[in-house]
Amino acid sequence: MADTADLKMSLAGQGTLVGSAVTAPASGACLADVAGIRITARVVAGLTVAAGERILILRRGSVYWVIASLGAAPAVPPTPPTEEPDPPSDPGDTAPAPKPTVTTGSLVCHPVATSTWRDGHWRTDDGSSTSMDTYQGRYGGSGYGRMSGFAFYGSKPRSLSGATITKATVRLRRLTAGDYSRRSPTLRLVSQSARPGGFPTLNETTTGPALGVSGHVSPSEATFTLPTSWGQAMADGSRGGLGMVISSDSPYMRLAGRSSWSAAWTLTLYWRRSS
């Protein structure tokens, strides 16, 4: 067996060494293998070393000292530490949400009925009660009562439910009745979409276009722009018709109904939808 003197050249200058105990300590020393070289090393008092354990050895001059036990050598190589994944690269600004698709259009609604109310009932003496001309007020000196004319639009405007109404217009033509001067009907928005048995429910009001009598004073015809809210109410279904109603006898005037003019009281709704 080689003694420590034989190792002075081979392990000199190595400093602290890690070896493997070949034997348990006896008389304060044990055999150890260091880098394939077997040496005799003294064991620090009180240190317990078992054969096969890894030990920490300190060289002082020509003497090797076991200064610590590192435990048994692992039976299998330790599992290498799991590498943390690289953080995701900064994608920069996210793409903006796609713009909504906007669809626009117009819906032409011809009235399903044009009618005139007088003296508690719908007039039938001047044509059908659902296609006759529409009157406002009372002819001077007449023994009949005041008249109110109406146009009803059925269910067609409600086909735009959910759309935004951007504009609403109505076609009107004045016919002979009363004086020839330009007069304006007082327009009303009514609840009913079909002619009721009684007088319609009146709601919002606006002043219509100033019209003269056809063939005498111009203009006698107009495409009149209604309040946009009126068109929206028609599309939403809370309103269903238009009327010309005043609380006095004058101005007395007559506007064409379905039987006199095919475009009479035609309502056009301009709309927009987003999706």
Rank of each mutant, 00 (worst) to 15 (best):
A12Q: 11
G15V: 06
A21S: 06
V22H: 12
T23K: 10
P25L: 06
A26E: 13
L31C: 09
L31S: 14
D33P: 04
D33M: 15
A35E: 10
R38K: 14
G46Q: 04
G46W: 05
A51K: 13
E53M: 10
L56M: 14
I57L: 09
L58F: 11
V63F: 02
A68I: 07
A68K: 12
S69W: 03
A72N: 11
P74M: 06
A75E: 08
V76I: 11
P78Y: 10
T79Y: 00
T79Q: 09
P81L: 02
P81I: 00
E83P: 10
E83R: 08
P85T: 07
D86I: 10
S89W: 07
P91M: 01
G92K: 04
G92E: 01
T94Y: 11
P96K: 09
K99Q: 14
V102T: 14
G105C: 02
L107C: 04
H110C: 11
H110P: 14
H110Q: 13
V112W: 10
A113V: 00
T114R: 10
T116K: 07
T124Q: 10
S128E: 08
D133Q: 03
G137C: 13
G140Q: 08
G143L: 08
F150K: 07
S155Q: 15
S159F: 00
A163R: 05
K167T: 03
R174P: 00
R174Y: 06
G178N: 05
S184P: 05
P185Y: 04
T186Q: 15
L187D: 04
R188T: 09
R188K: 11
Q192R: 02
G197P: 00
G198M: 01
F199Y: 14
G208V: 03
G212Y: 03
G215T: 01
S218H: 11
T223I: 10
T225H: 02
W230G: 03
G231T: 05
S238W: 02
S238I: 10
L242K: 03
I246K: 14
I246V: 15
D249T: 12
M253I: 04
L255G: 09
A256S: 14
S259K: 08
W261V: 13
A264S: 14
T266F: 01
Y270S: 13
W271Q: 01
R272V: 07
R272I: 01
S275Q: 10
